[in-house]
Write a protein that binds this DNA or RNA. Sequence first.
DNA 1: TATTGTTATACTCTATAACTATA
DNA 2: TATAGTTATAGAGTATAACAATA
Lengths: 141, 141
Amino acid sequence: MTQPTGFGDMLLGLSHLIQRRHVQICAEHDLTPAQSQLLCTIKDEPRRMVDLAAQLGMAKPALSQLIDRIESRGLVRRTTDGQDRRVVMIHATPEGQKIGRALYEDVDARLPDVLAALSSADQERFAQLVAAIPHVHCPRV
Amino acid sequence: MTQPTGFGDMLLGLSHLIQRRHVQICAEHDLTPAQSQLLCTIKDEPRRMVDLAAQLGMAKPALSQLIDRIESRGLVRRTTDGQDRRVVMIHATPEGQKIGRALYEDVDARLPDVLAALSSADQERFAQLVAAIPHVHCPRV
DNA sequence: TATTGTTATACTCTATAACTATA
DNA sequence: TATAGTTATAGAGTATAACAATA
């Protein structure tokens, strides 16, 4: 028991802060968080469905439908350019690419607002601690 | 720019780690995160719909339906014991109370698992930094 | 008229099972 | 037979608008 009582709660609270801020920023770009993560993931290079599903941590049918919705808005395109004709590649359209890149930068710049109350030094300490947690980078955008 | 590039991403990654762990723990108690938060909030004392909605950060209709679902499982009860007959109080049933308390303790004990890779000293530092962020406590469970 | 809560409706997200097409 | 992806179906969560009851 190194943590004070209520630490689990505090972590949940922190997570909600981050999520709410993310929803806000995504909404300004007219996207949901799920759509935003998809778009950010493929903004620079296309991916296969299977790989995307693994990276985003969702089942294939869920991804298929997420792509249906965002494809119908013209931000994403399905192609089958591989030699394996079972494979579907997901590309960002030019507009999707533009939105994805702008959103990515915006999130990176403004999500840390949730830490605004901490001093610069504390924010830096926080960043270093978070960076030391495994899997904070990989599984999503 | 005190943070390294990608810090927004890292915060998102951290949030997802926490969320996934929360989903796991809640699932072991046969609840979704939303149901779990509702139950934890009213586990010790009843609340009015309006106050619950504000505390959980959701609109009244959404809360109404969340309560419909969890009430149909017998974990929650609506009463109108106030002098203001418009007000509906949400209570945990004895079973709901039992589950809510067990879940709360479980979350508090096991959610910090996501930080397992950090040293004890670093976990403590992390906890202190998080505790210094305003609104980490209040808005939810 | 303002407040409390519900109903109606619709959309996103996600899961599982069954399916098609290709390898 | 195994893999990639889709379709079908269902349920949770949430939002807005319209409504009913009470103050």
